[in-house]
Design a protein around this nucleic acid. Sequence first.
RNA 1: GUGGAUAUAGCGUAGUUGGUUAACGCGCCAGAUUGUGGUUCUGGAGAUCGAGGGUUCGAGUCCCUCUAUCCACC
Length: 378
Amino acid sequence: MYEILKTEGNAKRARFTTVHGVVETPVFMNVGTVAAIKGAVATKDLYEIGTQIELSNTYHLHVRPGDKLIKELGGLHKFMNWEKPILTDSGGFQVFSLAGLRKIREEGVTFHSHVDGRIIFMGPEESMQIQSNLASTVAMAFDECPSSVAERDYVKQSVERTTRWLIRCQNEMKRLNSLEDTINKNQLLFGINQGAILEDIRIDHAKRISEMELDGYAVGGLAVGETHEEMYNILDVTVPHLPKDKPTYLMGVGTPANILEGVDRGVDFFDCVYPSRNGRHGHLYTKLGKINLFNQKYEKDMRPIEEGCECPACKMYSRAYIRHLLKAKEMLGMRLCVLHNLYFYNKLMSDIRDALDNGNFKSFKNSMLDSMSSGEDL
RNA sequence: GUGGAUAUAGCGUAGUUGGUUAACGCGCCAGAUUGUGGUUCUGGAGAUCGAGGGUUCGAGUCCCUCUAUCCACC
């Protein structure tokens, strides 16, 4: 169930209730592709840093350890001991990101496994079956993510195929949810809007999938090489054509600034590898901008990563120490950085929700954008 | 002591029969990374080529002396 609690302009403050609990939106989903947040982050840590919902990946878990194994062990929640909601990405993005290892046809996509090279076929039905086996809270539709610089003709036929795939996903999901031995019979399905940066294709597709009764709607295929302005423009023209009474999810985005702009355009779900990947590389987010802890200037810096931050890293350790850990390739260094970044993102979302509750999102957004680009005292 | 080998950036190495600005890996200093292959990529700084002398239009490359290090043998 999705209920809008408050709006400010196009921005929505909402509550999404699932069989695995409530998600307050706008929310950032913490990315754990292979059923783990990279950087030695444990379930206990996730509760401590305010994680509401985690994201995992169909393709990666299918390849290893296998969705049938996970089903046999009771589903993803039990397997990784995480009770709160999980959204699984469909494997569609891997069609794009692992391009070169794949062949796309009407029935689906043939991959070469990046792990052992074996041939894997995945179409809409297979993706739904795998996600049903994983028993995630939300399954994503199996789509194709065409390049933002793809030819118009290609994008058009790709998007049409993605629509046909969505219908097959929905039918298969209904069938799977009615089966006796399905773990999560209430599994939800989100559709995905595509169309590169071509406004009319985006809009037509948004209208088309809005006619289908889906549990949520994602905007995919953005933040893949186009400019920020192009991305914001696509959101401006596309989101208004998606159902307002359903969750909106901007896939794979993004920077704190991208998220503030996304919320302002009506998005409630976000996910991005930035906080965890950048954390592993020592790039840390603060309200005053980003810092690279590998930089020599932090060698003797005994301040926490961010003054006043309540994350496990900032409460205990200095920049100088964490920098040393990173340079020595000690796992604790990565771990602390990832914890800080995820805490920062989760806190950012919580501050956004507070601002929406209080009706001052616009001013909050502007002051955050100013502050983060100031680079003051870093 | 005798014979042999080696000496090029912080470390490890390459460098044609002598020929412009001495190359590479690691490390160091920076930068990228948007539904994650703990990766990868891109820049940058850093060398009076062990020291001194000689041959030559020209020497990291050839010759002499010295120094240091390593190996073998008394």
